[in-house]
Structure formats: C-alpha cells, structure tokens
C-alpha cells in the first residue's frame, strides 16, 4: 500500500476521529491522514488562500466527511468539492450519524461516493471503515487538469 493517496478526515468529534483512524490503520492502510476538527480549516486547506483549489491539481485525495460540523454543514463542503474542477474527482466518503433517507439521497445527488452511517454497534462501524481499505486500492491519481 504505497499509494500516494492522502486522506483528509473532516470530523469534529475527536473520539470518532480516533476510532476511524484506528480502524483504517487496522485495515492495513498506512496513507497519510490529515485530520480537521472544523469545516473552516478543512475548506481553507482544500481550496487554498485563493479559493480555487488549484494547488491540489493532480493530487490524489480521499475525503472523509462528517455532515454535522460545528461551523458549517458537511453538505456545503461536499457541494463545493464537487463543483470544483480540481477536486471533483476526489472520492468523498460521508461518515455521519444521520441515516435519514432524505439526507442520504441528497448526498448522493451532490456526488458523494460512499455514505456510511456511524452505527452505535461498533462491529458494524469497524467493518464499514475497514471496507474503505478496498476503496484505496482502486483510487487512481487523477490526471492534472489545466
């Protein structure tokens, strides 16, 4: 697993972040994980100071996104990612406590790639995270767009 994919984890709950990270590591994924505990910091990193996101051009990113953030909703971040020509090819995994069908539908409409509900049942949670391991093997570095 020497894939150059960088994992961005946008998750405000430190506990959840820790559990997600542990399970990703347990599934044998050793890629770099960059955690963000609020939406603002994540948006700043994603789109840069100029708000274009150009500095990520050609970079392989995987975004783990929580929908309930203290400063903005994950839905907004998802929309902006999918509207940005440099970032839209980055797979987005929505990880949230909401299993409301409306919300799920909306995320898929906006272009989220996987929607995972954080179940209280830890086994299911751990399994779902570990499944992501498979995902990494198929991620390709997107061709740079001009």
């Amino acid at each position: 697993m020497s894939n150059p994919v960088t994992i961005l984890m946008i998750e405000d709950d430190e506990g959840h972040a820790r559990l997600i990270e542990r399970n990703i590591r347990r599934s044998g994924v050793n890629n770099e994980i960059i955690p963000f505990s609020n939406g603002t910091a994540a948006v700043k990193y994603l789109f840069g100071g100029d708000g274009t996101g150009q500095h990520h051009n050609g970079q392989a990113l995987l975004i783990l996104l929580d929908l309930n953030l203290p400063d903005m909703t994950g839905i907004d971040i998802l929309r902006r990612i999918k509207e940005n020509k440099f970032l839209k090819s980055a797979p987005v995994v929505v990880l949230t406590t909401t299993d409301d069908s409306q919300e799920v539908k909306r995320c898929y409409e906006l272009g989220c790639n996987v929607y995972i509900t954080k179940p209280v049942n830890y086994e299911s949670f751990a399994n779902a995270i570990r499944q992501l391991g498979l995902f990494f093997s198929v991620i390709q570095v997107p061709p740079a767009v001009s």
Binding site: D13, G15, H16, L19, R22, N68, T97, T98, K118, P119, V120, N121, Y122, E123, F125, A126
Partner: peptide
C-alpha cells in the same frame, strides 16, 4: 436524538476498544 447518538458512538467504540 442526533446529537445524543454521536457521543454514544464514542462510548460504544471505546468500550469495544
């Protein structure tokens, strides 16, 4: 109910840990 669920995920997760 949503916000109550969030800490519960942690409690369950770390209990399993």
């Amino acid at each position: 109910s949503h916000d109550l669920r969030s800490p519960l995920v942690n409690i369950m997760g770390f209990t399993s840990e």
